[in-house]
Amino acid sequence: MTTLLNPSSAAVPGPAWLRALARLPLPWLRAAGTALGAVLYVVAARRRAVVRRNLALCFADATPAQRRRWAWETFRHFGQAFVDRIWLWHGSAAQVAQRVRLEGDWPALAQSGPQLLFVPHFVGLDAAWTRLTQAIVRPWAGMYAPQNSPLLDAWVRAGRARFGAPQLVSRREGVRGLARALRAGAAVYLLPDMDLGAAPSVFVPFFGIPAATVTALPRLAALGPAPVRPVVARLDRHGYRVWVGPVWPDYPSGDDVADAQRMNAELQRWIAETPGQYHWLHRRFKTRPPGHAGLY
């Protein structure tokens, strides 16, 4: 069953000033997000260096001016997406449905049984989660990284649980909680494109560079068993476009290395469409194969 508005569509409890800000025109909020991104770009020198290094490694053929533009866009879009949480979590349900447009095979997510979503770290990942849990009434589960600030942690947890009472599994628990949710028939929102160290990973190319890549996607898919669909969220001047792709055929293949390489190859293609919307602030190549020098 699908519905445009989830029955549990109340806004996240919070201060009145957040609810008031949520009613502001989107261009005003995006301007505030741009200002936040500009401040971070200036003061977060170490993160700026990481972004520039990532872009230099992954887009060696681009001009320096192009890479500088993408670096600035990374911070600008990060700031805008952070401010957008105000209306995603404190605005009206109708506002969320209007500004976050679903495209592709999203109605298929209403099918019963376990489903596994590959969601890369584009800036719109919170918008995609909010809209999908609003639009599709079914069990949902996703990984949650606890925040250092208790106030921020409570805000983020409440925001991500706004629609449909999803299960939020702490990263400290690992994939065990996600595996249980998958076995129970949930749609699992998985973000497996970060460097989590050598132990849970295989080294496969990412933009031609050996990158520690976790194998949680094929392993959970086999465990379900569950079909895998990609979800790519793009920020634009109207809000967001969330594309839900078709099921990946012949996945998993039984070869974790081949499956991780396929995941990275698909991700590269999407990143190349909007390089300035990917989460380059993360040190994607911090874990190196034995005998390889550090890149940061």
Rank of each mutant, 00 (worst) to 15 (best):
T213G: 09
L116R: 03
T2W: 14
P230K: 00
R283F: 01
Q115T: 07
V228P: 08
F59M: 05
L57W: 00
A212M: 05
L182K: 10
Q147I: 05
A165E: 03
A81K: 05
F118S: 12
F75D: 07
D259P: 08
H90G: 06
E103R: 13
W70T: 09
L191E: 08
R69V: 06
L223S: 11
R180T: 15
W70V: 07
E103F: 08
L178N: 12
L152A: 14
F206S: 02
Y189D: 09
P15D: 10
R171C: 05
A62R: 15
Q167E: 15
P249V: 01
G185E: 07
F163H: 11
A11N: 04
A265T: 15
K286Q: 15
G113L: 09
L220H: 10
H279I: 12
N148L: 13
T3K: 06
Y41N: 08
T63K: 13
F118E: 04
T74S: 14
Q261N: 07
A44S: 05
T63S: 15
D256F: 12
V214Y: 12
V119L: 10
A199E: 15
F122G: 03
E173C: 01
N6Q: 12
A265H: 11
R67I: 10
G177W: 08
Q167C: 12
L88P: 10
D250H: 05
Q66V: 03
A260T: 10
W17C: 12
V12N: 03
R180G: 14
P249W: 02
G79C: 00
P275T: 05
G294F: 05
V232E: 00
F206M: 03
Y278D: 13
V100F: 01
W87L: 10
V232G: 00
N264L: 10
D153M: 06
A184S: 15
P230I: 08
Y189G: 08
W129R: 12
T274N: 13
T3W: 09
H90D: 02
A31L: 15
P192A: 10
V83N: 08
